[in-house]
Structures are given as structure tokens and as C-alpha cells.
Design a protein around this nucleic acid. Structure first.
Lengths: 197, 197
DNA sequence: CTCTCATTTGGGAGTGACTCCCACTTCGGT
DNA sequence: ACCGAAGTGGGAGTCACTCCCAAATGAGAG
């Protein structure tokens, strides 16, 4: 399972972490908008063009999660036969468990939630995954991806989860993530009306 | 109810419509990305700085709806005492009824749904309204706007509706909008699991 | 260990969205 | 007709992002 990684890749990742590090330092000091990519590149000792190669956009510098685990394995076997939400719940909580409550790098998160252009980038990324989510739902429920209900469900999920995370942040991470997710999924599962009575 | 509008405002709106018109022409011919704001301004006979004054961004040119009716009156009286979804449903269908099925200017819509940067702008605008939606929900259900469930519901709504509109577009507007909305709201109301069984 | 090839990096040149500013025009009310 | 307010044109500038290519540097073969 260990991915083989040469010097090349190691250097690249080191550089990326360094760039992100100094970028966050500069952002903390002057604010996201007041810092230029050129300044970041200089401070990190790389060329501006390299920064774009690494992160695509300025927002990407904040978005990048060096510890990210790709959990795109096409559904774990033990989730087969479960109803939709049970499967989802287990997938998500497994993910959270692996990371502890430290899914969150507070430093980055502040920008993810508060700087408008970065917020937008986050939303965009989440909604990029809507088709994937729709496939997942379609698979679990035996429906077609193209059905309205499936699409709406996927969109509602994305929107609901995004709102939940923003709420979590707004309340200063007071509620344990696990609990929060459970309540969020329950709301989505049981219907918006019922759960609001 | 008629808003008094002087020559100044009339000229401004005429200019905006003209700019949008020629912009869409140019987009149709060369593609959104290949057309510069300067070209649009020239073709419309205004200064580039005016275009930005009017629309804020290039995407804003497409977003702008000259026929938009502001329906932000704080809840119509006849909706009082209704349950959340009934009130929502009536609000939305009333809006649709007023506009016929012509809520949609096909020309603009194509760009709203297909050009990445414009798509993003649409999503952004919708999610800008989430706090408003949350207030609406909070009011109707006697809960606090700050509650997780309320926030999640508002986010899920936004995401669900966005997905519905995209589905509608993807299917070439085959289904009547009223029906589509009814199914969408039903899915959100009754819960994502139930309605997918 | 060395040579060669495939990648990656640095940095220069350029594009275009968007901002700032200010002199000039034009509208609205007296 | 006149004055003050608001809008317009257009010049100058910033910065995110792209394209390109020559120089540098790992990776693998012999």
C-alpha cells in the first residue's frame, strides 16, 4: 500500500509545504488580498511559475492539504448491503476517526471559511464532487444517475454538509465533529420538515 | 407601486441592456473566454469602466436579469400559519406563475449553466442567499437561525434547488418547471432516504 | 560511476480582468 | 437658465494567470 516515492517527488512536496507555510505566514501578517503570489514565491525561494504549477491558483495554496488521504476506493466491501445513509455515515465517520478531530488545520481553516475568494473555491470544490456523490447514491438505491431525485439529493448533501462545516466553524468547533455529522445526516435523511418541527 | 424613474435611470438601464445584448452576440460568436470586456464596451459604445460600474464583473454581464422582480417582501400575509414547505411551495410557484415558464431567457441560461466561471458565479449568488433562507426557515419553525439544523436545511435547499435547475437544463427543459419544483421540494421535505427508496 | 533521457524549474514576456482617479458631461430641481 | 449631484470616459496601474524555452537535475541503463 505504501506508495513508492523518489527524490523528485519528495522535493516537490517539501517545496509545496514550504510555499504553503510562508504563504500562511504572510497572509496572517498582511491579509490574503494584500499578499501577491510573487512575494510568496520570493519568500519561499521558488519561481512564481512554480507556485502556479503546484497549486494552480492563489486560492489553491490554502486549499492544498498535505495530509489528505484519498478515500476514493470504490466503496468498501463492508458497506455493501447497507442502506444509503448508514453507508454514508460509516464512510464519513471512518474518515473522521482516522484523522481524529484533527481533520482541521486551524490555520488554513480560518482562510477557508473567511476569505471570500477562498470560500468560493471551497464551495466549488465541493460541488465538483456532486456527480460522484450522485453516482454513489444511484448505485446504492438502484436508481439512475440522471433522475431528478438523485441529482437533488446529491446537491442537497453537498449544500447541507457545507453549511454544517460553516456552522461548526462559526461556533468555534465547540461541538465534537462526530456528533455534528450525525445530526447533519439525520436532518438530511429524515427530511427537512420533520426534523425542524 | 410603480417606481418613479427618471431619464437618468432609464438611460442607464438601456445601456445595460445594450451591453448585455452585444456581449451575448459576441459570446455566441467567439465563446465567453475569447471575448474581452474592452471589445464588448467598444461594440456597445460605452467605456470599459462603465461596464464594470454596471455589472461588477464580466460574469455579471450574463448574470444580470433585466426583468428580475425583487420578491423580497418579507413574507406575504396569506402565507402565515402555513407549514414551512407549504409556504415555500406557494412562494416559489407564485413566482413561476407570474413569469410563465419564461423565467428563462434561453440565451443567457446556456452560459449560466455551461461556462465554468459563470456557473461558479451562479452558485455563489445562490449561496449568498443562504442566510436569508435560514432566517425564513427559522421564522417559520420558531427556531433560532444559529441552530445547526436550520443552517443545514438552508444549505440543503440551496444545493437541492441548484441541482434541480441544472438537471432541468441538462434535460433540455423537457419537464414543466412547476412539476419539477414540486418533485424537488417533496424530496427535500420528506427526506432524502425515503424518497429514494 | 557516468552518460543520457525525461522532467522539472526559473524567469521573461504577455494578456486581460479589475481598480483608482479625475476632468468632463449630463440630469434634476429651483 | 443655473447650480449641485451624479454619471461617464478614459488613462494609468496592479496583479492573477498563461506560454515558452533554456538551463538544471533526478531516474535509470550500461
Amino acid at each position: 500500500m505504501e506508495e513508492r516515492v523518489g527524490l523528485r517527488e519528495r522535493k516537490r512536496r517539501a517545496a509545496m509545504r514550504r510555499v504553503q507555510e510562508v504563504a500562511l505566514d504572510l497572509f496572517d501578517e498582511h491579509g490574503f488580498d494584500a499578499v501577491t503570489v510573487k512575494q510568496i514565491a520570493e519568500a519561499a525561494g521558488v519561481a512564481p511559475s512554480s507556485v502556479y504549477r503546484y497549486f494552480e491558483t492563489k486560492e489553491g495554496i490554502v486549499l492544498y492539504d498535505p495530509n489528505r488521504i484519498v478515500l476514493s476506493e470504490p466503496a468498501r466491501p463492508e458497506e455493501d448491503g447497507l442502506r444509503l445513509f448508514e453507508a454514508l455515515y460509516r464512510t464519513i465517520t471512518a474518515f473522521v476517526a482516522e484523522h481524529g478531530d484533527e481533520v482541521i488545520d486551524r490555520r488554513r481553516t480560518r482562510y477557508l471559511m473567511e476569505v471570500p475568494s477562498v470560500r468560493t473555491a471551497v464551495a466549488e470544490r465541493i460541488f465538483t464532487d456532486v456527480p460522484t456523490m450522485a453516482s454513489f447514491i444511484a448505485e446504492r438505491t438502484g436508481r439512475s444517475v440522471d433522475e431528478l431525485e438523485v441529482q437533488v439529493a446529491a446537491g442537497a448533501f453537498a449544500g447541507g454538509l457545507l453549511a454544517a462545516v460553516r456552522h461548526w466553524h462559526a461556533e468555534d468547533y465547540a461541538e465534537p465533529l462526530g456528533e455534528l455529522l450525525e445530526r447533519t445526516l439525520a436532518t438530511l435523511r429524515d427530511g427537512l420538515e420533520v426534523s425542524l418541527e
